[in-house]
Amino acid sequence: MPFTKLNGKLIEAQVFPGQKVFSQRGAMIAYSGQVTFTPNMMGGQGGVMSMIGRRIANEDTPLMTVEGQGRVMFGHGGHNVHVIDLTGDTLYVEADRLLAFDGTLQQSTMFMGSQGGVMGMVRGQVTGQGLFTTQLTGQGSVAVMAHGGVIELPITPQQPIHVDPQAYVAHRGQVQNKLSSALGWRDMIGRGSGEAFQLELSGHGMVYVQASEEKL
């Protein structure tokens, strides 16, 4: 069910019996009603493979399962929260940016290195993004965190979007992403413009970009 935004940094989720919500561990601010919080060793769902993937990728952001009946407020670290409603499509987001998501969504980890071969590996290292990304598919809401507000930029086949890796938050849809480098001789001698690496996103979908170049 949709999350309600209380302000830029807080969301409220309604929890009903039989409907789970997953959230980052410790992100609960307040709740009313009968709600239980169970730490989730597996980091959500997705089975053992997904867990191993997360361990290797150092992306084992601890999750907890929220169940019961009531209202729960989530927020974390004073970060801005952006709610994304999925309607059957897939959202790609880094685990540490996930604040909360509907239990109805299928969670899995995607090996980013498989996209783009060696360059994909390099991208993970350069952008600090890691080799694995969390993938959420289905019908439901996701709350992602960002430093500063989030803007949504549509991606169309005619118009690929280039994003500063540090400002990239998430993307959804049928999107190819590759690291493009604009490294020139200027960068070699320390006269770079600070925009040497960019994520190029092409295809059909949407990219979420934060108003800051600070990672969480």
């Binding site: 280039h162 500063d164 600070g194 108003a211 170049e213």
Partner: peptide, 18 residues
């Protein structure tokens, strides 16, 4: 400001000014 680009569409080139 150097490094302040967060995203772009189209063709862009970035050059540091001395």
């Amino acid at each position: 400001r150097n490094g302040s680009m967060v995203a772009y569409s189209g063709q862009m080139s970035f050059k540091k000014l001395s």
